[in-house]
Design a binder for these strands. Structure first.
Lengths: 149, 149
DNA sequence: GGTGAAAGTGCCACCAC
DNA sequence: GTGGTGGCACTTTCACC
């Protein structure tokens, strides 16, 4: 793990605001030349601080407007990597976390419709290591921010 | 609201995989020339299907590795926009949703440490419209995917 | 970390369908 | 309305200082 200084943070902020901005533009903001910015970005990508660049889409307009959070309770003792391997092939799984408290994991599902969500939940519950699930359907997205600097 | 055809979807997929790929590269994948791709991307941005381009960072390595999901229960009847206005100024709020079930909202918090998370939770509970909260601390991130095509 | 030059890209006007 | 072409400015990317 390496040191990420103030200039790196400002470069990351620029790229989070607009991942397609040019190295020259970023350089004007942070006070560096374009090649210097590129060298820092390449290093941040190499070390994994920056994982990549992606487009932010409106799931609603693409027809993936139905979301739910699912508490997953497993039978017996299950390792996090077990759960991870089971969830990875499911396209509807946006994110998953092991958590404190009664549940073993929280799974963030996104689907095209309530019906699609239902089938995804059925497939989730069919996983043998999963004992039971408690799902909470999202009614509206109040806030959705990209990660902070 | 406009029509988003198959080619648009494939362009969006390319940009989600790498928001910094060139229009020519995308064109090679979807079978269009670079200017044709740019025109479609510009239109998708105009209409809001594409909201922008952002860098994907590893929160762990940036020192924002502590996460929690918080069920928020409000007193009386509170409108979603009320909750939204209260949460918007909090930097630790990554996302928030109104949900079905007993809770009024689910708030996704991200903080630099357990102590930072604690102070964020205190500020959340200090909001007068909020009656009580039930928080679930994330132990590990099993999966974290950018939105699907 | 900056500079300069070569290769690649973005972006626009214009044309064809 | 769609998509393709050509040309010029800008960007990326390298070696070198």
């Amino acid at each position: 793990m390496l040191r990420v200084d103030t200039i790196d943070h400002r470069i990351i902020s620029c790229l989070m605001a607009n991942a397609r901005s040019s190295y020259a533009d970023i350089g004007n903001v942070v006070g560096l030349s374009a090649p210097a910015v590129k060298r820092r970005v390449d290093k941040l990508l190499d070390t994994g601080v920056l994982r990549g660049f992606t487009a932010v889409v409106d799931p609603e307009q693409l027809g993936w407007g139905t979301e739910a959070f699912v508490e997953v309770h497993c039978r017996g003792n299950v390792s996090p990597s077990d759960i991870q391997n089971r969830l990875e092939p499911m396209a509807e799984v946006m994110a998953a976390y092991t958590v404190s408290g009664a549940a073993d994991a929280i799974v963030h599902l996104r689907a095209a419709s309530i019906h699609h969500l239902e089938t995804a939940l059925e497939r989730l519950r069919a996983v043998e290591i999963i004992d039971r699930t408690v799902s909470t359907v999202v009614l509206s997205r109040l806030l959705d921010r990209p990660p902070a600097p």
